[in-house]
């Protein structure tokens, strides 16, 4: 475990905490895409199929449990919590899951490291994670008022993947035989998708004004 990887995981954890904070304290999920949250729940389910079969470390297992548990709770809150669900912008959040999931599944069936169920699901999870933010970014562009917690949530989520890239570079340099194209390429695509958002986030931070994306 290197510092980039640890910081990345902690940033990911913080993004989830920020979102849960918004849901728990403000009882609001305004500006948050349920589609993206559902895709994340699918991503972690498909990726962590090895949770009961391969023990890596206590840290690894605990983090997997946390990401699975929190992703499903967020979906539950947004769908079923009697107060939280009222703030969900259903009419604005119109992205269809199938348009993202189907191409990712086809790609995972075609390009994978081994053609087994677990391996294809693991690969699928990376392809899907790369694009899972798209419904959220579309919603963000449609929502004129982006509150601070939503902005911070998306910033932390983007930062988490950017830090993973530094981790991969570090591991490639320091560990022999560390080559892993599928997470690398999908991680790179994912980080690039945040590029535009990062630009406006830093602009609003620098000028100390409220974050707004151009229409």
């Amino acid at each position: 475990m290197n510092i980039f990887r640890l910081t990345a995981d902690m940033t990911h954890l913080m993004s989830v905490i920020v979102l849960l904070l918004k849901i728990h304290t403000i009882k609001s999920c305004a500006g948050i895409s349920l589609k993206t949250q559902e895709l994340y729940a699918i991503v972690f389910t498909c990726r962590y199929l090895d949770i009961f079969t391969d023990f890596i470390s206590f840290y690894n297992t605990i983090m997997k449990v946390i990401f699975l548990w929190t992703s499903f709770s967020i979906v539950w809150y947004m769908r079923y919590h009697k107060i939280v669900r009222r703030s969900y912008d259903k009419d604005q959040d119109t992205f269809r899951h199938v348009f993202l999931m189907l191409p990712c599944l086809v790609l995972a069936l075609l390009i994978n490291e081994r053609f087994t169920f677990k391996e294809v699901m693991w690969t699928f999870s990376f392809y899907l994670e790369a694009v899972a933010i798209l419904p959220q970014l579309v919603l963000l562009q449609r929502t004129r008022n982006i509150d601070n917690l939503t902005g911070q949530y998306i910033f932390l989520l983007g930062a988490y993947r950017a830090l993973y890239i530094l981790n991969w570079i570090y591991r490639y340099v320091t560990e022999p035989n560390y080559v892993h194209w599928i997470p690398w390429m999908s991680g790179l695509v994912q980080t690039l998708l945040y590029g535009d958002f990062f630009y406006y986030y830093f602009l609003s931070w620098k000028n100390n004004v409220k974050l707004q994306l151009p229409a």
């Binding site: 090895d50 391969d54 983090m63 997470p183």
Partner: peptide, 10 residues
């Protein structure tokens, strides 16, 4: 080269 990679990342 095929690596039997330990999936230790999240």
């Amino acid at each position: 080269v095929k690596h039997d990679f330990v999936k230790d990342e999240l």
